[in-house]
C-alpha cells in the first residue's frame, strides 16, 4: 500500500478519536464542562478530555493569553506529539478581543503558534464548540489541518516572534 493511501486511512481513523487538552486560560474554560458532560456529551464524537499534553491531539486555547501564559502554552504545545492541532477559542486569540489594548495580552495567537481553527464568539456556546470540532474532523480527514507541519517548517520564524513577545519588543540583534 502506498504511503498516501495509508496516511488517508490513518487520518480517517484518527479524526474519530480526538483527545483534547484544554488549556484553560480565560473564560472559555467555563464552556468546556457542559460540552464534556451529559448535556452535550462530546464523547459521542470520539472526543475525550486528556490530562497530559503528551497523549493529546488537540490543544484548546480557551481565551486570552498573556505573555507569561504564552510561554507555558508553547512548552505544552512542543510536548505534544505529531500530528497535533490547535483550536483557538473565542475572540481573544483572534485579535485580542476586549483586551486588545492591554499591556500584557498578546493580540493574535497565530503569530506565535500555528492555529488550525479559530472559533469566534465571546464566548462560543457549547453548540459552537461541537460544530468547530466537527469542522476540525473534516479538515483532518481532508488533510487540511497541517499547522504542525507549518510549525516544523517555519520553526525559526515562530521562535523569533515568540522571543520578540517575551521581551516586549526589546530584542538585541
Amino acid at each position: 500500500m502506498k504511503y498516501e493511501e495509508w496516511s488517508k486511512i490513518s487520518r480517517i481513523a484518527s479524526k474519530k478519536s480526538l483527545w483534547i487538552l484544554h488549556f484553560c486560560t480565560g473564560c472559555g474554560a467555563i464552556e468546556m464542562p457542559p460540552v464534556m458532560t451529559s448535556r452535550f456529551d462530546m464523547e459521542r464524537f470520539g472526543m475525550a478530555p486528556m490530562a497530559t499534553p503528551r497523549q493529546a491531539d488537540v490543544l484548546l486555547i480557551t481565551g486570552y493569553l498573556t505573555v507569561k501564559t504564552l510561554k507555558r502554552v508553547i512548552q505544552v504545545y512542543e510536548q505534544m506529539q505529531d500530528p497535533k492541532y490547535v483550536v483557538a477559542f473565542g475572540s481573544c486569540p483572534i485579535n485580542g478581543g476586549m483586551y486588545w489594548d492591554s499591556y500584557n495580552t498578546i493580540n493574535q495567537l497565530d503569530k506565535y503558534l500555528p492555529v488550525d481553527l479559530y472559533l469566534a464568539g465571546c464566548m462560543p456556546r457549547p453548540e459552537g464548540i461541537i460544530n468547530a470540532m466537527m469542522e476540525l474532523m473534516e479538515m483532518i480527514e481532508k488533510g487540511e489541518a497541517r499547522g504542525w507541519e507549518k510549525y516544523r517548517k517555519n520553526y525559526e520564524k515562530y521562535k523569533k516572534n515568540q522571543e520578540m513577545a517575551f521581551k516586549f519588543g526589546k530584542v538585541e540583534e
Binding site: I106, E144, R146, K150, K153, N154
Partner: peptide
C-alpha cells in the same frame, strides 16, 4: 510591541 510582530507566512502550508 505586538502589532509590529509579523505574521508567519507560508504559502505551501495553508491552514
Amino acid at each position: 510591541v505586538f502589532e509590529s510582530i509579523p505574521p508567519v507566512e507560508d504559502e505551501d502550508e495553508g491552514i
